[in-house]
Write a protein that binds this DNA or RNA. Structure first.
Lengths: 197, 197
DNA sequence: CGCCGAGTTGAACTGAATCAAGAAACGTGG
DNA sequence: CCACGTTTCTTGATTCAGTTCAACTCGGCG
């Protein structure tokens, strides 16, 4: 997967002007994380948003039996952060971790709130991010309520075909809310169905 | 449950000033819905946010087997809307319905976007709403991924003790993602456990 | 080569769904 | 205020999707 710079992303996905984008660039920096490194740990307070330029990141929690549950994946061109921790300055409930070598464009929250106050364009941009996030979360809840493991897997393939190929099946299972064994069986059963056609 | 006016709500939960609040009041109106009435139907485009002054409302979808799945309840003092439909002016994917006789303070989106442009206080207020929503949705996803039906029910009781007493168990079950029969059994099993203590 | 983690497969088990029937609660009209 | 039908809740018997635990396979990598 190719690198996507934040400035390219902004140019093609928002109507922020050149000056605004240049201003942003000037105050931010790119960080590199090795596979397995943490961008944010549970308990830490989150101070920034993470734009994934290259690589792949996941947000997940660990329950009291030690099991991991993945809330979301963020590949190139996605922004990931702990909104609750960021906005309310509370300790994060979840981890954010690189699952490939990853380059992150770091957007400090302090900068965001400054720009939000002075530039209405930027406010709109931020608003859009929040709304997209809400749409995505709502859809996911609806799926968890209404669809079987197989349906959720099919929907995952369709929505994130690239991610499927880049992460171990264990993680896909964790995202879907099933065990790795179950996912393996779902896949087997589906491959059978395809042959019959 | 007592009536909560939007202006009281704003006074005690935001730092919007009197003038701002009065301005808002002047451009909005209160609507009354009978139990069973729809505030928004699937397929309609949503143009407003609904502040519940009195009564109780639910947002839900119907799957292709005709089953209902409740995304959220909104009792007095809550705001409910279809953010996706509202923001992107697309047809709503879910219904919003009164499940008690309900009085709704209607906040047109047109007004919100006007105020957002002119008053930074109001922008902040709106931003807070979005962040609260995201926090709530994220927590729900994590629970659906990690907790058993019993745990989810216990958490529901704790978080929404009032709602539990106001809606039929069928709807609680639908919110939790289980059947009414299962919920009945969970409750029975829990009452057994309490006696043993 | 040999190890090691990821994926697969099998067998037994379990939480929850389904189907069906009965009991309780509820509201509406007479 | 009672009688009725309707909805809600409970209970039982059965089925099923998904879990658990354990053993085995496979492909990559030191």
């Amino acid at each position: 997967m190719n690198k996507i710079t934040f400035s390219t992303f902004l140019t093609s996905n928002t109507d922020l002007d050149e000056t605004m984008i240049a201003e942003l660039m000037r105050h931010c920096r790119t960080l590199f994380f090795k596979k397995g490194d943490f961008l944010l740990r549970q308990g830490d307070t989150c101070h920034a948003s993470f734009f994934v330029e290259k690589g792949l990141v996941r947000q997940y929690g660990i329950d009291n039996e030690g099991k991991e549950h993945i809330l979301q994946f963020a590949p190139e061109g996605w922004i990931v952060t702990d909104r609750d921790s960021l906005y309310n300055k509370t300790p994060a409930a979840y981890f954010i971790q690189a699952i490939e070598d990853t380059s992150i464009f770091l957007i400090e929250e302090e900068l965001v709130s400054k720009l939000t106050k002075s530039h209405s364009n930027f406010t709109t941009f931020n608003d859009t991010l929040l709304h997209n996030h809400i749409r995505q979360l709502t859809k996911r809840i609806y799926q968890l309520l209404s669809a079987s493991a197989e349906d959720r897997y099919l929907s995952f393939i369709k929505t994130y075909p690239d991610i499927l190929l880049r992460v171990p099946q264990t993680m896909v299972a964790s995202y879907l809310g099933i065990t790795p064994e179950s996912l393996s069986r779902v896949r087997k059963s589906l491959s059978g169905k395809n042959f019959k056609k």
